[in-house]
């Protein structure tokens, strides 16, 4: 089974803050990491390869620094890595991103399965997986939490829903987006790290993938971010006073309508 895994380098979201006074992002100490959901996608791909043979190719669209997450994926068992990078890709929304990734994947060769994390923790859109499947005209299943079988080129799986799960058959080639419950990602191995260090990463730019300049980056985007701001909260902040007993008494009186 030849598998392509899409990975993204993201800032560690829990550290990103917007200063409400200056409306600027505080980036000090914000680390760049592999999108956590993508780690699960890489792990699942490596497990499928270990069971059924084949190769795992990781692909990322991003600046040259995104090479780091590709090497992380190789250290965890991926075989090949492709970086799709060009300044012309900057400012891409999910629409332009799926166009670019689709073009790049078509250049990369044949595949049976594409795996993506369910969403990236920076944008939280969850749109790239389904959009990419549409671009490639392959069937897809989102929110996969378990792969239960593989026979006659059909994967059987469980899709997580809001009220339970669906049991699904996906004929290959196809695309999956995975949730965290699907596996526990491994830690890189020493041999994997050494391989990752020396592996030459194939880089594709806009010309390499025959991209239409009007469909990539900011010009190719259908949406635009027009404003970024810190969330506001409305609390009245009435701090109760007195002894604990007095405070509890006051609170119960105030909450009377609900009790």
């Amino acid at each position: 089974m030849n598998i392509i895994v899409c990975v993204k380098q993201v800032p560690d979201a829990k550290d990103v803050r917007l200063d409400p006074k200056t409306n600027t992002m505080a980036r000090e100490g914000v680390e760049s990491i592999m999108n956590p959901f993508d780690r699960h996608a890489v792990e699942e791909a490596v497990r499928l390869k270990e069971q059924h043979g084949g190769t795992v190719t990781v692909i990322s669209m991003g600046p040259p620094q995104a090479e780091a997450v590709l090497r992380d994926a190789v250290a965890c068992g991926a075989d090949e890595a492709v970086l799709v990078s060009d300044r012309a890709f900057a400012g891409a929304d999910t629409w332009a991103t799926t166009y670019t990734l689709g073009k790049a994947i078509n250049k990369t060769g044949s595949y049976d399965l594409i795996l993506c994390g369910k969403q990236a923790i920076d944008g939280d859109t969850a749109q790239v997986g389904p959009g990419l499947a549409k671009r490639l005209n392959i069937p897809y299943v989102s929110y996969v939490r378990k792969i239960t079988g593989f026979e006659n080129n059909v994967l059987t799986l469980h899709r997580l829903m809001d009220d339970g799960y669906d049991e699904i058959e996906l004929p290959l080639p196809g695309l999956l987006t995975v949730v965290k419950e699907i596996n526990v990602p491994r830690v890189p191995s020493l041999k994997g790290k050494m391989k990752a260090k020396s592996l030459s990463i194939k880089t594709l730019n806009a010309a390499d993938i025959d991209a239409n300049p009007d469909s990539i980056g900011l010009p190719g985007s259908t949406t635009q971010v027009v404003k970024v701001f810190a969330p506001e909260f409305k609390g009245e902040r009435a701090m109760l006073e007195g002894t604990v007993d007095e405070q509890v008494e006051q609170l119960v009186n105030k909450l009377q309508p609900y009790l």
Binding site: V187, S189, L190, K193, K197
Partner: peptide, 18 residues
């Protein structure tokens, strides 16, 4: 060395995550 740092990084990750 670079290899020794790799050993530290992997061991640290196992320690912190597992």
């Amino acid at each position: 060395t670079e290899e020794q740092q790799m050993i530290v990084d992997i061991s640290r990750q196992i320690t912190d995550e597992k």
